[in-house]
Design a binder for these strands. Structure first.
Length: 488
RNA sequence: CGGGAUGUAGCUCAGUCCGGUAGAGUACUCGUCUGGGGGGCGAGUGGUCGCAGGUUCAAAUCCUGUCAUCCCGACCA
Protein backbone atom coordinates (compact mmCIF):
# COMPACT_ATOMS: atom_id res chain seq x y z
CA UNK A 1 0.00 0.00 0.00
CA UNK A 2 1.15 3.49 -0.77
CA UNK A 3 1.98 5.94 1.95
CA UNK A 4 -1.07 7.79 3.13
CA UNK A 5 -3.59 6.03 0.94
CA UNK A 6 -6.06 3.67 2.53
CA UNK A 7 -6.52 0.55 0.43
CA UNK A 8 -9.79 0.05 -1.43
CA UNK A 9 -10.36 -3.19 0.36
CA UNK A 10 -9.90 -1.67 3.77
CA UNK A 11 -12.21 1.31 3.30
CA UNK A 12 -13.41 2.31 -0.13
CA UNK A 13 -14.76 5.73 0.89
CA UNK A 14 -11.57 6.60 2.68
CA UNK A 15 -9.56 5.42 -0.31
CA UNK A 16 -11.52 7.81 -2.51
CA UNK A 17 -10.97 10.71 -0.12
CA UNK A 18 -7.27 9.89 0.13
CA UNK A 19 -6.89 9.89 -3.65
CA UNK A 20 -8.63 13.24 -3.99
CA UNK A 21 -6.43 14.75 -1.36
CA UNK A 22 -3.09 13.11 -2.03
CA UNK A 23 -3.28 13.47 -5.80
CA UNK A 24 -3.92 17.17 -5.31
CA UNK A 25 -7.32 17.19 -6.99
CA UNK A 26 -9.31 19.09 -4.39
CA UNK A 27 -9.36 20.42 -0.86
CA UNK A 28 -12.15 21.00 1.57
CA UNK A 29 -13.03 24.64 1.82
CA UNK A 30 -14.11 26.92 4.62
CA UNK A 31 -17.66 26.61 3.31
CA UNK A 32 -19.73 23.60 4.24
CA UNK A 33 -20.21 21.19 1.37
CA UNK A 34 -18.04 23.15 -1.00
CA UNK A 35 -14.61 22.16 -2.27
CA UNK A 36 -11.65 23.96 -3.70
CA UNK A 37 -10.72 22.37 -6.99
CA UNK A 38 -6.94 22.44 -7.10
CA UNK A 39 -4.87 22.92 -10.26
CA UNK A 40 -4.45 19.22 -10.99
CA UNK A 41 -8.14 18.49 -10.48
CA UNK A 42 -9.14 21.52 -12.47
CA UNK A 43 -6.81 20.53 -15.29
CA UNK A 44 -8.63 17.21 -15.60
CA UNK A 45 -11.97 19.01 -15.66
CA UNK A 46 -10.62 21.46 -18.24
CA UNK A 47 -9.61 18.62 -20.51
CA UNK A 48 -13.07 17.12 -20.17
CA UNK A 49 -14.64 20.48 -20.77
CA UNK A 50 -12.59 21.25 -23.86
CA UNK A 51 -13.42 17.93 -25.43
CA UNK A 52 -17.12 18.13 -24.61
CA UNK A 53 -17.30 21.71 -25.80
CA UNK A 54 -15.82 20.68 -29.14
CA UNK A 55 -18.38 17.88 -29.39
CA UNK A 56 -21.22 20.29 -28.63
CA UNK A 57 -19.98 22.68 -31.30
CA UNK A 58 -19.74 19.83 -33.80
CA UNK A 59 -23.39 19.05 -33.16
CA UNK A 60 -24.40 22.63 -33.85
CA UNK A 61 -24.59 24.15 -30.40
CA UNK A 62 -23.39 27.57 -29.29
CA UNK A 63 -22.49 28.80 -25.82
CA UNK A 64 -24.22 31.54 -23.89
CA UNK A 65 -24.50 32.58 -20.28
CA UNK A 66 -27.56 33.13 -18.10
CA UNK A 67 -27.73 34.64 -14.60
CA UNK A 68 -26.76 32.89 -11.41
CA UNK A 69 -29.87 34.27 -9.71
CA UNK A 70 -33.38 33.18 -10.47
CA UNK A 71 -36.43 35.07 -9.22
CA UNK A 72 -38.13 32.82 -6.72
CA UNK A 73 -41.44 33.00 -8.56
CA UNK A 74 -39.90 31.49 -11.73
CA UNK A 75 -39.15 28.25 -9.99
CA UNK A 76 -42.75 27.64 -9.06
CA UNK A 77 -44.03 28.02 -12.62
CA UNK A 78 -43.47 24.37 -13.46
CA UNK A 79 -45.03 22.27 -10.72
CA UNK A 80 -42.89 19.12 -10.88
CA UNK A 81 -39.75 21.13 -11.36
CA UNK A 82 -40.19 23.15 -8.19
CA UNK A 83 -41.10 20.05 -6.26
CA UNK A 84 -37.87 18.41 -7.35
CA UNK A 85 -35.59 21.27 -6.36
CA UNK A 86 -37.34 23.25 -3.63
CA UNK A 87 -35.73 21.29 -0.82
CA UNK A 88 -32.19 22.16 -1.81
CA UNK A 89 -32.19 25.81 -2.82
CA UNK A 90 -29.98 28.57 -1.51
CA UNK A 91 -31.97 31.80 -1.32
CA UNK A 92 -30.74 35.39 -1.45
CA UNK A 93 -32.89 37.59 0.76
CA UNK A 94 -30.85 40.77 1.24
CA UNK A 95 -28.45 42.90 -0.73
CA UNK A 96 -26.48 44.79 1.86
CA UNK A 97 -24.40 44.36 5.00
CA UNK A 98 -23.76 46.91 7.70
CA UNK A 99 -21.43 47.29 10.65
CA UNK A 100 -22.73 45.43 13.64
CA UNK A 101 -24.20 48.00 16.05
CA UNK A 102 -22.60 45.91 18.83
CA UNK A 103 -19.27 46.42 17.16
CA UNK A 104 -18.60 42.85 16.10
CA UNK A 105 -17.97 42.59 12.40
CA UNK A 106 -20.84 42.99 9.99
CA UNK A 107 -24.49 41.96 10.00
CA UNK A 108 -27.19 41.81 7.36
CA UNK A 109 -28.86 45.18 7.01
CA UNK A 110 -32.53 44.53 7.76
CA UNK A 111 -33.40 47.58 5.64
CA UNK A 112 -31.95 45.88 2.57
CA UNK A 113 -34.49 43.08 2.19
CA UNK A 114 -35.14 42.15 -1.44
CA UNK A 115 -38.57 42.83 -2.88
CA UNK A 116 -38.47 39.40 -4.51
CA UNK A 117 -36.07 36.84 -3.14
CA UNK A 118 -33.61 35.25 -5.54
CA UNK A 119 -32.77 31.59 -5.77
CA UNK A 120 -29.21 30.60 -6.59
CA UNK A 121 -29.74 28.39 -9.64
CA UNK A 122 -29.92 24.68 -8.95
CA UNK A 123 -30.39 24.37 -12.73
CA UNK A 124 -31.39 26.98 -15.27
CA UNK A 125 -34.51 25.78 -17.09
CA UNK A 126 -36.73 28.45 -15.64
CA UNK A 127 -34.58 31.52 -16.23
CA UNK A 128 -33.70 30.24 -19.68
CA UNK A 129 -37.25 29.52 -20.77
CA UNK A 130 -38.33 32.89 -19.44
CA UNK A 131 -35.71 34.31 -21.81
CA UNK A 132 -36.56 32.02 -24.74
CA UNK A 133 -40.06 33.44 -24.64
CA UNK A 134 -38.61 36.67 -26.00
CA UNK A 135 -36.32 35.00 -28.49
CA UNK A 136 -38.82 32.73 -30.19
CA UNK A 137 -41.68 33.95 -32.36
CA UNK A 138 -41.52 31.92 -35.53
CA UNK A 139 -40.58 28.45 -36.66
CA UNK A 140 -37.73 30.29 -38.37
CA UNK A 141 -36.23 31.00 -34.92
CA UNK A 142 -36.01 27.27 -34.27
CA UNK A 143 -34.23 25.16 -33.38
CA UNK A 144 -32.43 27.08 -30.68
CA UNK A 145 -29.36 25.09 -29.65
CA UNK A 146 -27.68 26.66 -26.65
CA UNK A 147 -25.29 25.42 -24.02
CA UNK A 148 -23.90 27.12 -20.97
CA UNK A 149 -20.90 26.33 -18.78
CA UNK A 150 -21.75 27.39 -15.28
CA UNK A 151 -21.77 26.70 -11.59
CA UNK A 152 -24.93 25.62 -9.80
CA UNK A 153 -25.86 25.18 -6.17
CA UNK A 154 -27.84 22.39 -4.61
CA UNK A 155 -27.92 22.41 -0.83
CA UNK A 156 -27.10 18.79 -0.25
CA UNK A 157 -27.28 17.14 3.16
CA UNK A 158 -24.25 15.02 2.67
CA UNK A 159 -21.44 15.89 0.33
CA UNK A 160 -18.39 14.18 -1.13
CA UNK A 161 -15.68 15.79 -3.21
CA UNK A 162 -16.66 15.83 -6.92
CA UNK A 163 -19.44 13.27 -6.48
CA UNK A 164 -21.76 15.55 -4.61
CA UNK A 165 -20.93 19.07 -3.53
CA UNK A 166 -23.19 21.98 -2.67
CA UNK A 167 -21.73 23.98 -5.51
CA UNK A 168 -20.51 22.29 -8.64
CA UNK A 169 -19.43 23.11 -12.16
CA UNK A 170 -21.28 21.73 -15.12
CA UNK A 171 -22.64 22.40 -18.54
CA UNK A 172 -26.32 22.57 -19.27
CA UNK A 173 -27.66 22.44 -22.78
CA UNK A 174 -31.10 23.93 -23.36
CA UNK A 175 -32.66 23.51 -26.75
CA UNK A 176 -35.96 24.54 -28.29
CA UNK A 177 -37.58 22.80 -31.23
CA UNK A 178 -40.62 23.09 -33.45
CA UNK A 179 -41.59 19.43 -33.30
CA UNK A 180 -41.72 16.65 -30.78
CA UNK A 181 -39.68 14.37 -32.98
CA UNK A 182 -36.91 16.85 -33.41
CA UNK A 183 -36.70 17.42 -29.63
CA UNK A 184 -36.63 13.70 -28.90
CA UNK A 185 -33.90 13.29 -31.52
CA UNK A 186 -31.92 16.07 -29.90
CA UNK A 187 -32.15 14.48 -26.47
CA UNK A 188 -31.06 11.17 -27.94
CA UNK A 189 -28.24 12.76 -29.89
CA UNK A 190 -26.75 14.37 -26.79
CA UNK A 191 -27.22 11.16 -24.87
CA UNK A 192 -25.08 9.54 -27.53
CA UNK A 193 -22.49 12.33 -27.31
CA UNK A 194 -22.18 11.71 -23.56
CA UNK A 195 -21.82 7.97 -24.04
CA UNK A 196 -19.15 8.50 -26.68
CA UNK A 197 -17.28 10.93 -24.46
CA UNK A 198 -17.41 8.58 -21.48
CA UNK A 199 -16.17 5.60 -23.42
CA UNK A 200 -13.73 7.14 -25.91
CA UNK A 201 -12.15 9.76 -23.65
CA UNK A 202 -12.75 8.71 -20.04
CA UNK A 203 -12.31 5.02 -20.97
CA UNK A 204 -15.36 4.46 -18.81
CA UNK A 205 -17.90 2.01 -20.19
CA UNK A 206 -21.49 3.14 -19.76
CA UNK A 207 -24.91 1.67 -20.19
CA UNK A 208 -27.33 3.81 -22.12
CA UNK A 209 -30.86 3.74 -20.93
CA UNK A 210 -33.88 5.70 -19.84
CA UNK A 211 -34.93 6.49 -16.31
CA UNK A 212 -38.10 5.20 -14.74
CA UNK A 213 -40.79 7.77 -13.93
CA UNK A 214 -39.58 7.80 -10.36
CA UNK A 215 -35.96 8.60 -11.21
CA UNK A 216 -36.75 11.07 -13.98
CA UNK A 217 -35.61 14.71 -13.91
CA UNK A 218 -38.16 17.02 -12.31
CA UNK A 219 -40.22 18.31 -15.21
CA UNK A 220 -39.07 15.87 -17.90
CA UNK A 221 -41.14 13.43 -19.93
CA UNK A 222 -38.14 11.23 -20.60
CA UNK A 223 -34.70 11.16 -19.04
CA UNK A 224 -31.88 9.42 -20.90
CA UNK A 225 -28.97 8.40 -18.75
CA UNK A 226 -25.51 6.91 -18.97
CA UNK A 227 -24.75 4.65 -16.02
CA UNK A 228 -21.29 3.46 -15.06
CA UNK A 229 -20.08 0.94 -12.51
CA UNK A 230 -17.53 2.09 -9.95
CA UNK A 231 -14.91 -0.20 -8.42
CA UNK A 232 -17.03 -0.77 -5.32
CA UNK A 233 -19.68 -2.12 -7.74
CA UNK A 234 -22.04 0.75 -7.11
CA UNK A 235 -23.67 2.54 -10.01
CA UNK A 236 -22.96 6.15 -10.85
CA UNK A 237 -25.19 8.28 -13.05
CA UNK A 238 -22.64 10.04 -15.19
CA UNK A 239 -24.78 12.17 -17.47
CA UNK A 240 -28.39 12.82 -18.31
CA UNK A 241 -30.29 14.18 -21.29
CA UNK A 242 -33.93 15.11 -20.94
CA UNK A 243 -36.84 15.36 -23.32
CA UNK A 244 -38.92 18.04 -21.62
CA UNK A 245 -41.92 17.95 -23.94
CA UNK A 246 -43.84 21.22 -23.80
CA UNK A 247 -43.83 21.54 -20.03
CA UNK A 248 -41.54 24.55 -19.85
CA UNK A 249 -43.06 26.13 -22.95
CA UNK A 250 -46.42 25.96 -21.22
CA UNK A 251 -45.06 27.27 -17.94
CA UNK A 252 -43.34 30.23 -19.58
CA UNK A 253 -45.74 30.67 -22.46
CA UNK A 254 -43.22 30.06 -25.21
CA UNK A 255 -45.00 29.69 -28.55
CA UNK A 256 -44.14 30.06 -32.20
CA UNK A 257 -46.02 30.47 -35.45
CA UNK A 258 -45.61 27.49 -37.72
CA UNK A 259 -45.49 27.45 -41.53
CA UNK A 260 -49.28 27.60 -41.58
CA UNK A 261 -49.42 30.67 -39.36
CA UNK A 262 -50.76 28.56 -36.49
CA UNK A 263 -49.51 29.13 -32.96
CA UNK A 264 -47.81 26.14 -31.33
CA UNK A 265 -45.97 25.43 -28.10
CA UNK A 266 -42.22 24.90 -28.36
CA UNK A 267 -40.64 21.50 -27.60
CA UNK A 268 -37.66 21.38 -25.26
CA UNK A 269 -34.63 19.39 -24.16
CA UNK A 270 -31.96 19.89 -21.56
CA UNK A 271 -28.83 17.88 -20.88
CA UNK A 272 -25.89 18.10 -18.56
CA UNK A 273 -22.73 16.62 -17.14
CA UNK A 274 -20.82 17.96 -14.17
CA UNK A 275 -17.59 17.85 -12.22
CA UNK A 276 -19.03 14.60 -10.90
CA UNK A 277 -17.33 13.09 -13.96
CA UNK A 278 -14.00 13.73 -12.26
CA UNK A 279 -15.19 11.55 -9.38
CA UNK A 280 -16.37 8.93 -11.86
CA UNK A 281 -12.98 8.94 -13.53
CA UNK A 282 -11.20 8.46 -10.21
CA UNK A 283 -13.42 5.59 -9.14
CA UNK A 284 -13.27 3.81 -12.47
CA UNK A 285 -9.52 3.48 -12.92
CA UNK A 286 -7.51 4.43 -9.86
CA UNK A 287 -5.70 1.96 -7.60
CA UNK A 288 -4.09 1.83 -4.18
CA UNK A 289 -1.01 3.65 -5.50
CA UNK A 290 -3.06 6.67 -6.46
CA UNK A 291 -4.81 8.19 -9.41
CA UNK A 292 -4.88 6.45 -12.77
CA UNK A 293 -5.83 8.67 -15.69
CA UNK A 294 -6.64 7.75 -19.27
CA UNK A 295 -4.04 9.36 -21.55
CA UNK A 296 -6.65 11.36 -23.45
CA UNK A 297 -7.59 13.31 -20.33
CA UNK A 298 -4.33 13.34 -18.39
CA UNK A 299 -3.03 16.90 -17.87
CA UNK A 300 0.51 15.53 -17.98
CA UNK A 301 0.90 12.50 -20.20
CA UNK A 302 4.59 11.80 -19.84
CA UNK A 303 7.02 12.57 -17.04
CA UNK A 304 10.77 12.34 -17.24
CA UNK A 305 12.81 11.55 -14.14
CA UNK A 306 16.58 12.03 -14.08
CA UNK A 307 18.41 9.33 -12.14
CA UNK A 308 19.68 10.13 -9.62
CA UNK A 309 19.39 13.87 -10.25
CA UNK A 310 19.62 16.40 -13.04
CA UNK A 311 23.03 16.45 -14.70
CA UNK A 312 24.31 17.94 -17.89
CA UNK A 313 24.42 14.77 -19.94
CA UNK A 314 20.97 13.69 -18.68
CA UNK A 315 19.49 17.12 -19.33
CA UNK A 316 20.67 16.96 -22.91
CA UNK A 317 18.80 13.75 -23.62
CA UNK A 318 15.79 14.70 -21.49
CA UNK A 319 15.28 18.07 -23.15
CA UNK A 320 15.54 16.52 -26.55
CA UNK A 321 12.97 13.86 -25.65
CA UNK A 322 10.72 16.49 -24.14
CA UNK A 323 10.92 18.48 -27.33
CA UNK A 324 10.22 15.53 -29.59
CA UNK A 325 7.30 14.35 -27.44
CA UNK A 326 5.79 17.83 -27.40
CA UNK A 327 6.07 17.99 -31.16
CA UNK A 328 4.25 14.67 -31.30
CA UNK A 329 1.44 16.33 -29.36
CA UNK A 330 2.01 15.08 -25.82
CA UNK A 331 2.19 17.07 -22.63
CA UNK A 332 5.49 16.41 -20.90
CA UNK A 333 6.93 17.22 -17.50
CA UNK A 334 10.66 16.94 -16.95
CA UNK A 335 11.04 16.70 -13.18
CA UNK A 336 14.32 18.52 -12.55
CA UNK A 337 13.70 19.07 -8.84
CA UNK A 338 17.07 18.20 -7.31
CA UNK A 339 15.69 18.24 -3.77
CA UNK A 340 13.61 15.15 -4.35
CA UNK A 341 14.95 11.70 -4.92
CA UNK A 342 13.96 9.45 -7.80
CA UNK A 343 11.94 7.07 -5.65
CA UNK A 344 9.96 9.97 -4.28
CA UNK A 345 9.27 11.27 -7.75
CA UNK A 346 8.18 7.85 -8.97
CA UNK A 347 5.67 7.62 -6.15
CA UNK A 348 4.47 11.15 -6.70
CA UNK A 349 3.99 10.80 -10.44
CA UNK A 350 2.08 7.60 -9.86
CA UNK A 351 -0.05 9.31 -7.24
CA UNK A 352 -0.94 11.98 -9.79
CA UNK A 353 -1.82 9.46 -12.47
CA UNK A 354 0.72 10.39 -15.12
CA UNK A 355 0.24 7.60 -17.70
CA UNK A 356 3.86 7.13 -18.79
CA UNK A 357 7.12 7.79 -16.97
CA UNK A 358 10.57 7.88 -18.51
CA UNK A 359 13.59 7.40 -16.29
CA UNK A 360 17.04 8.34 -17.53
CA UNK A 361 20.20 7.47 -15.62
CA UNK A 362 23.85 7.17 -16.45
CA UNK A 363 23.53 3.44 -17.01
CA UNK A 364 20.79 4.12 -19.53
CA UNK A 365 22.85 6.75 -21.28
CA UNK A 366 25.74 4.33 -21.61
CA UNK A 367 23.41 1.82 -23.28
CA UNK A 368 21.51 4.48 -25.23
CA UNK A 369 18.20 3.45 -23.69
CA UNK A 370 15.49 4.95 -21.52
CA UNK A 371 13.40 3.16 -18.92
CA UNK A 372 9.74 3.45 -19.88
CA UNK A 373 7.11 2.71 -17.24
CA UNK A 374 3.35 2.63 -17.68
CA UNK A 375 1.13 3.72 -14.83
CA UNK A 376 -1.78 1.37 -15.33
CA UNK A 377 0.12 -1.92 -15.04
CA UNK A 378 3.38 -0.73 -13.48
CA UNK A 379 5.24 -2.51 -16.27
CA UNK A 380 8.74 -1.22 -17.03
CA UNK A 381 11.04 -1.76 -20.00
CA UNK A 382 14.18 -0.37 -21.52
CA UNK A 383 13.61 1.27 -24.88
CA UNK A 384 16.32 2.41 -27.30
CA UNK A 385 16.55 6.18 -27.32
CA UNK A 386 15.53 6.56 -30.95
CA UNK A 387 12.37 4.52 -30.39
CA UNK A 388 11.07 6.27 -27.31
CA UNK A 389 8.63 8.60 -29.07
CA UNK A 390 7.16 5.73 -31.04
CA UNK A 391 6.91 3.67 -27.88
CA UNK A 392 5.14 6.46 -26.03
CA UNK A 393 2.65 6.90 -28.88
CA UNK A 394 1.97 3.19 -28.80
CA UNK A 395 1.54 3.18 -25.03
CA UNK A 396 -0.88 6.10 -25.08
CA UNK A 397 -3.22 4.14 -27.32
CA UNK A 398 -2.60 0.92 -25.48
CA UNK A 399 -3.22 2.36 -22.00
CA UNK A 400 -6.36 4.13 -23.14
CA UNK A 401 -7.73 0.87 -24.60
CA UNK A 402 -6.61 -1.33 -21.81
CA UNK A 403 -8.20 0.88 -19.15
CA UNK A 404 -11.46 0.70 -21.05
CA UNK A 405 -11.26 -3.06 -21.52
CA UNK A 406 -10.40 -3.62 -17.90
CA UNK A 407 -13.39 -1.55 -16.83
CA UNK A 408 -15.67 -3.44 -19.22
CA UNK A 409 -14.46 -6.72 -17.82
CA UNK A 410 -14.99 -5.52 -14.27
CA UNK A 411 -18.53 -4.53 -15.12
CA UNK A 412 -19.24 -7.82 -16.83
CA UNK A 413 -17.80 -9.78 -13.94
CA UNK A 414 -20.13 -7.94 -11.62
CA UNK A 415 -23.28 -8.09 -13.68
CA UNK A 416 -25.89 -10.64 -12.64
CA UNK A 417 -29.29 -11.90 -13.65
CA UNK A 418 -31.94 -12.62 -11.07
CA UNK A 419 -35.22 -14.41 -11.67
CA UNK A 420 -36.49 -14.90 -8.17
CA UNK A 421 -36.79 -12.57 -5.22
CA UNK A 422 -34.56 -14.75 -3.04
CA UNK A 423 -31.87 -14.69 -5.69
CA UNK A 424 -32.26 -10.94 -6.19
CA UNK A 425 -31.95 -10.11 -2.52
CA UNK A 426 -28.96 -12.38 -2.11
CA UNK A 427 -27.07 -10.88 -5.02
CA UNK A 428 -27.74 -7.29 -3.97
CA UNK A 429 -26.76 -8.07 -0.41
CA UNK A 430 -23.69 -10.26 -0.98
CA UNK A 431 -22.36 -9.50 -4.44
CA UNK A 432 -23.41 -5.99 -5.35
CA UNK A 433 -23.01 -4.85 -8.92
CA UNK A 434 -25.67 -4.63 -11.60
CA UNK A 435 -28.62 -6.96 -11.52
CA UNK A 436 -30.78 -7.46 -14.60
CA UNK A 437 -34.23 -8.40 -13.47
CA UNK A 438 -37.83 -8.24 -14.60
CA UNK A 439 -39.95 -5.40 -13.26
CA UNK A 440 -43.66 -4.85 -13.57
CA UNK A 441 -43.30 -1.19 -14.52
CA UNK A 442 -44.88 0.33 -11.43
CA UNK A 443 -43.37 2.94 -9.14
CA UNK A 444 -44.91 1.08 -6.25
CA UNK A 445 -42.79 -2.01 -6.89
CA UNK A 446 -39.70 0.07 -7.56
CA UNK A 447 -40.03 1.80 -4.19
CA UNK A 448 -40.79 -1.42 -2.36
CA UNK A 449 -37.60 -2.96 -3.75
CA UNK A 450 -35.61 0.12 -2.83
CA UNK A 451 -37.03 0.03 0.66
CA UNK A 452 -36.02 -3.58 1.19
CA UNK A 453 -32.64 -3.70 -0.55
CA UNK A 454 -31.45 -0.08 -1.09
CA UNK A 455 -31.14 -0.97 -4.75
CA UNK A 456 -32.79 1.30 -7.31
CA UNK A 457 -33.54 0.94 -10.98
CA UNK A 458 -30.60 2.61 -12.63
CA UNK A 459 -32.14 2.48 -16.06
CA UNK A 460 -34.16 0.62 -18.60
CA UNK A 461 -31.39 -0.23 -21.06
CA UNK A 462 -32.00 1.01 -24.59
CA UNK A 463 -30.59 -2.16 -26.11
CA UNK A 464 -32.56 -4.57 -23.95
CA UNK A 465 -34.14 -7.44 -25.75
CA UNK A 466 -37.86 -8.00 -25.61
CA UNK A 467 -38.32 -10.81 -23.19
CA UNK A 468 -41.57 -11.72 -21.52
CA UNK A 469 -41.11 -12.48 -17.87
CA UNK A 470 -42.42 -12.07 -14.38
CA UNK A 471 -41.54 -9.21 -12.09
CA UNK A 472 -38.90 -10.34 -9.65
CA UNK A 473 -40.82 -8.74 -6.80
CA UNK A 474 -44.53 -8.81 -7.61
CA UNK A 475 -44.65 -11.69 -10.09
CA UNK A 476 -46.72 -9.56 -12.46
CA UNK A 477 -45.97 -9.67 -16.20
CA UNK A 478 -42.93 -7.79 -17.52
CA UNK A 479 -41.78 -6.86 -21.02
CA UNK A 480 -38.07 -6.99 -20.31
CA UNK A 481 -35.31 -6.63 -17.78
CA UNK A 482 -34.15 -3.43 -16.12
CA UNK A 483 -30.93 -2.79 -14.25
CA UNK A 484 -30.97 -2.64 -10.49
CA UNK A 485 -28.02 -1.50 -8.38
CA UNK A 486 -27.06 0.43 -5.33
CA UNK A 487 -26.09 3.85 -6.53
CA UNK A 488 -24.18 7.01 -5.67
C1' C B 1 -31.90 16.22 8.88
C1' G B 2 -31.04 11.79 12.68
C1' G B 3 -26.90 8.60 15.15
C1' G B 4 -21.59 8.31 16.21
C1' A B 5 -16.65 10.53 16.18
C1' U B 6 -13.14 14.49 15.68
C1' G B 7 -11.10 19.76 15.60
C1' U B 8 -3.81 21.17 19.23
C1' A B 9 2.59 23.26 14.07
C1' G B 10 1.62 22.78 6.58
C1' C B 11 0.20 17.20 7.55
C1' U B 12 -0.64 12.79 11.19
C1' C B 13 -1.43 12.85 16.17
C1' A B 14 -0.16 12.80 21.93
C1' G B 15 -1.50 15.90 26.06
C1' U B 16 -7.93 16.78 28.07
C1' C B 17 -10.33 11.96 32.55
C1' C B 18 -7.37 14.49 37.43
C1' G B 19 -6.73 22.82 35.38
C1' G B 20 -0.46 24.86 36.86
C1' U B 21 5.43 27.59 31.33
C1' A B 22 2.77 23.91 24.22
C1' G B 23 4.72 18.24 22.86
C1' A B 24 6.24 14.18 19.18
C1' G B 25 6.69 12.32 14.26
C1' U B 26 6.55 14.17 9.49
C1' A B 27 7.06 18.34 6.26
C1' C B 28 9.93 22.88 5.66
C1' U B 29 15.06 25.78 6.01
C1' C B 30 20.52 25.35 6.42
C1' G B 31 24.82 22.11 6.55
C1' U B 32 26.73 17.37 5.44
C1' C B 33 27.10 12.36 3.69
C1' U B 34 24.19 10.16 -0.03
C1' G B 35 21.73 8.86 -4.67
C1' G B 36 18.26 3.16 -10.24
C1' G B 37 11.46 2.91 -5.79
C1' G B 38 8.92 7.64 -0.73
C1' G B 39 17.39 8.31 2.40
C1' G B 40 21.11 8.98 7.02
C1' C B 41 23.27 12.46 10.57
C1' G B 42 23.41 17.49 12.83
C1' A B 43 21.19 22.25 13.65
C1' G B 44 16.94 25.38 13.05
C1' U B 45 11.87 27.77 11.64
C1' G B 46 6.95 26.97 12.84
C1' G B 47 0.96 26.85 17.29
C1' U B 48 -3.59 33.53 20.42
C1' C B 49 -4.81 24.54 21.15
C1' G B 50 -11.74 25.53 15.45
C1' C B 51 -14.52 30.05 17.09
C1' A B 52 -17.43 32.88 20.97
C1' G B 53 -18.85 33.30 25.83
C1' G B 54 -18.51 31.56 31.03
C1' U B 55 -16.19 29.33 35.78
C1' U B 56 -11.20 30.02 38.16
C1' C B 57 -5.59 33.17 41.16
C1' A B 58 -4.76 30.10 36.69
C1' A B 59 -8.22 26.83 31.00
C1' A B 60 -5.81 22.98 25.25
C1' U B 61 -7.96 20.65 29.79
C1' C B 62 -14.16 22.21 33.26
C1' C B 63 -19.27 24.46 31.54
C1' U B 64 -22.53 26.68 27.59
C1' G B 65 -23.12 27.96 22.72
C1' U B 66 -21.48 27.88 17.78
C1' C B 67 -18.86 26.48 13.24
C1' A B 68 -16.49 22.80 10.42
C1' U B 69 -14.95 17.92 9.02
C1' C B 70 -15.24 12.47 8.85
C1' C B 71 -18.13 7.76 9.27
C1' C B 72 -23.20 5.45 9.22
C1' G B 73 -28.40 6.37 7.74
C1' A B 74 -32.63 9.36 5.12
C1' C B 75 -32.37 12.81 0.43
C1' C B 76 -29.98 13.76 -4.14
C1' A B 77 -26.11 14.74 -10.35
Amino acid sequence: MSKGITSREQNYSQWYNDIVKRAGLADHSAVRGCMVIKPHGYAVWENMKNQLDAMFKETGHVNAYFPLFIPKSFLSREAEHVEGFAKECAVVTHHRLMNDPNGKGVVVDPEAKLEEELVVRPTSETIIWNTYKDWIQSYRDLPLLINQWANVVRWEMRTRPFLRTAEFLWQEGHTAHSSKNEAVEEAEKMHEVYARFAEDYMAMPVIKGVKTANERFAGALETYTIEAMMQDKKALQAGTSHFLGQNFAKAFDVTFLNENNKEELVWATSWGVSTRLVGALIMTHSDDQGLVLPPKLAPIQVSIVPIPKPAEEIDKVAYQLEDELKKAGYSVFYDRDDKKRPGFKFAEHELKGIPVRLAIGKRDLANKVVEVARRDTGEKQSVPLDQVVAKVSELMVDIQNSLFNKAVKFREDNTHYADSWEEFEKIIKNEGGFVYAHWDGTTETELAIKDRTKATIRCIPLDRKEEKGKCVFSGKPSEGRVIFAKAY
